[in-house]
């Protein structure tokens, strides 16, 4: 059946909507081959249809129609595969911050890595251009109620220097009272936990 392999790609994405499965180079190139094959046989048949038009006989048009809609279907699946992967990747850029964990990076194709670098650069450039000193859009995702918040450390993170020069040692299960603006990123990355009484 036509288009089976292309749907396999989509199913792969459907199974894990919030993470990225490894980029399936083999299957993508198989779908490409299927499309090339379909287009070539359509061209051949269209040519012979032109030549035999005057002769009575079976028309090849239905065959061509079938193959053509299979090509269009394959294109849709391929585009959807890549587009939805980019969507996940974009969300990851916001959630993980600038640097992705290496095991996620392994799952990307080299074009996706390239796209991510470009996206990060544009984002950084935009954030610098807003206002006089630039603004970090990744902070204050929720309206702040106080300048300082209480946090608990979830992992042995090591040393952490605040803007005023004080160096803290973030040990597992230690509690701290920190400026919200400086620890928000660490909370998002799962290093600290925000304690709400």
């Amino acid at each position: 059946m036509f288009g089976e392999k292309a749907v396999e790609l989509i199913k792969e994405l459907d199974r894990c909507p919030t993470s990225l499965p490894p980029y399936n180079t083999d299957l993508v190139s198989e779908v490409n081959n299927e499309m090339r094959h379909l287009i070539e046989s359509n061209q051949d048949d269209a040519r012979s249809e032109e030549e035999n038009r005057s002769l009575s006989g079976e028309s090849l048009l239905p065959t061509i129609k079938c193959r053509h809609s299979a090509v269009i279907r394959n294109i849709r699946c391929l585009l959807a595969y890549h587009y939805n992967r980019l969507r996940v990747l974009r969300t990851m850029r916001w959630q993980f911050g600038g640097v992705l964990p290496s095991d996620i990076k392994q799952n990307l194709s080299h074009l996706e890595v390239e796209w991510l670098t470009k996206y990060s650069n544009s984002l950084a450039q935009y954030m610098r251009s807003v206002g006089e000193e630039g603004i970090n859009l990744a902070t204050n995702l929720k309206p702040p109620k106080s300048l300082y918040i209480e946090v608990r450390c979830l992992v042995n993170y090591g040393k952490f220097e605040l803007n005023n020069g004080i160096v803290l040692l973030l040990k597992k299960n230690s509690r701290h009272f920190l400026p919200r603006s400086e620890c928000e990123e660490l909370i998002r990355q799962g290093v600290l936990e925000h304690l709400v009484s």
């Binding site: 969300t91 929720k142 928000e184 998002r188 799962g190």
Partner: peptide, 9 residues
């Protein structure tokens, strides 16, 4: 609303 660890992380 507490600041939460990002869902994907």
């Amino acid at each position: 609303t507490p600041i939460e660890t990002a869902a994907m992380v």
